[in-house]
């Protein structure tokens, strides 16, 4: 048990580049789908149970010792638009640099060598968690929490939303996060022996559509 390492990994100040991404919130604000704390919460709940669940499953599977290159392919099959695949790989590369500085390991080095342009971020996160001595459940928590804390933080900047309100949104999602992380960890533990079909594949059509719309904007505050 190594709880302190989880706080380092899940800290919003961990230098893995997440602050440059809004997780689809910038596009949702522009479309009028996020206007206040209540609509932010709905967006985050929807994202958590789709993209967040998939990310948590991948991270848990990698932390459980699943083959990271196979999981990188699994992530591609669950990410049907290029804008989101590119964002996930860019974030993965940045996560890799920070993780190798924090917890140098042969597994991280091997993944970095095999995917020099970046593996999908949740896969890197899972291998990093493993290097830090964390469990698949820890990795699932970190992936799922980041999946909603990113949009919540971005909306504070995009809408000048009160940071107290944004934090309250995250607190209200804690029950969902607990259940989802447990489910993702259970699925991740089965991956090494049972293969990709046990991992969540939940999709959110609007996140895919608006990610490509957003990528075509000439000027934007966030990279995704």
């Amino acid at each position: 048990m190594n709880r302190a390492a989880l706080m380092v990994l899940a800290d919003g100040r961990f230098p893995a580049g997440g602050h440059a991404h809004s997780g689809g919130a910038e596009a949702a604000v522009a479309a009028g789908r996020i206007t206040d704390a209540a609509s932010l919460e709905a967006f985050c709940r929807g994202r958590l149970h789709t993209a967040g669940l998939v990310a948590a499953g991948l991270a848990a599977a990698a932390a459980a010792g699943g083959d990271p290159l196979a999981l990188d392919d699994v992530a591609d099959a669950r990410t049907p638009v290029p804008a989101l695949r590119a964002a996930a790989r860019r974030l993965g590369r940045q996560m890799m640099r920070a993780a190798r500085a924090a917890w140098p390991s042969a597994e991280l080095a091997a993944l970095a060598a095999a995917r020099p342009r970046g593996a999908h971020q949740p896969v890197v996160l899972g291998v990093a968690a493993r290097a830090a001595g964390l469990t698949p459940l820890d990795a699932a928590y970190a992936a799922a929490y980041e999946n909603v804390s990113g949009p919540a933080t971005a909306v504070v900047r995009l809408l000048s939303l009160d940071p107290f309100d944004a934090t309250a949104v995250l607190a209200r999602l804690a029950g969902d996060l607990d259940r989802l992380a447990a489910d993702a960890a259970a699925a991740g533990a089965r991956f090494p022996t049972e293969g990709p079909h046990v991992l969540p594949a939940a999709s959110a059509p609007l996140l895919d559509i608006t990610a490509e719309q957003h990528a075509a904007w000439p000027v934007r505050l966030f990279a995704s």
């Binding site: 479309a31 789908r33 609509s39 709905a42 967006f43 709940r45 929807g46 994202r47 149970h49 969902d176």
Partner: peptide, 12 residues
């Protein structure tokens, strides 16, 4: 019974 299905992230 499906959490988060009718949200602005999924269907709007």
């Amino acid at each position: 019974g499906v959490p988060g299905w009718d949200t602005s992230a999924a269907l709007g």
